[in-house]
Design a protein around this nucleic acid. Sequence first.
DNA 1: TTCCCATATGTATAATTATTCAAATTATTT
DNA 2: AAATAATTTGAATAATTATACATATGGGAA
Lengths: 157, 157
Amino acid sequence: MGNRTERLLAIKELITTKKISSQEELLNLLEERNLNYTQATLSRDLKFLKVNKISDPEKGYIYELPDQHAVINETAGNFAARGFISIQFANHLGIIKTMPGYASSIASLVDEADPFEIVGTIAGDDTILIIPHDNVSESDIINALVLIIPELKEKLS
Amino acid sequence: MGNRTERLLAIKELITTKKISSQEELLNLLEERNLNYTQATLSRDLKFLKVNKISDPEKGYIYELPDQHAVINETAGNFAARGFISIQFANHLGIIKTMPGYASSIASLVDEADPFEIVGTIAGDDTILIIPHDNVSESDIINALVLIIPELKEKLS
DNA sequence: TTCCCATATGTATAATTATTCAAATTATTT
DNA sequence: AAATAATTTGAATAATTATACATATGGGAA
């Protein structure tokens, strides 16, 4: 034993690829992969993975991973917040680091909101350059960002 | 006893307004409204209403009505629809033009929805290349897009 | 009305899932 | 390394949820 991680990955894969409606069913599928555990462990795993049980026309109820919906579910702000990594300042300029691919969409949120603290932005793939107006402090910029993307609040304090 | 409808309405209301994590809990809340039933009936009601049980940080798992998502849902779609400008086809490839910065986030919606018409996407800053499977028509692609982002419907007809 | 038939519900129980407790394993500190 | 703490797991069991079966209720059809 001892391969909790392997088991959790297998569970995620099985849940996304098959319609599974009970822990026993899942248990058997894991067994086919030589992952032998008990129902108790599975119960804990499902809770850990925050697996939901949702209505299904075919099988009554089936397990589903939580982010299935979360993706669709997402607001622009959540989307931005997820990709946001950090902001630093150098020479009166702000540099936001994002996850790959997120920079331009986050920057465009800033541009659209058009906060008066900011002249403009330049976005690459994972970096945004924030160009502030004169006499605008770093904390002004941060406050403006939180205003535009409230979901960033936690990451920025 | 004959007020099944009243009971079902009460259940829906209770589930949307409170975090309820067991049938017994729900049973007691119904009792407070002079709706006296048994757990068996509730079990059937929840199945009838297609109520899901989803992970909740506070209470472990709670009941949730199935269309809750649909509403929030709109936001990601609206976000995408707002940035969408046009789609054209050339050489069996689709080219979506978006407002600056929107390309990658719209493309990721498409990727995540994974429609079987589409092999994959490549996104720049304001352009997405859609690579369809063979034998897929332009209108198939458009229909798939509308499925993924219903808000696009008006723009695409 | 009387006889069906479909639906709704309760009781009892089966099936499923969560948890307690102890043992084993793994990680951390001294 | 030894000691200690934290984590993981299984077995047994508790708690929760679903269902088989019986009974009741209400709505047509004859």
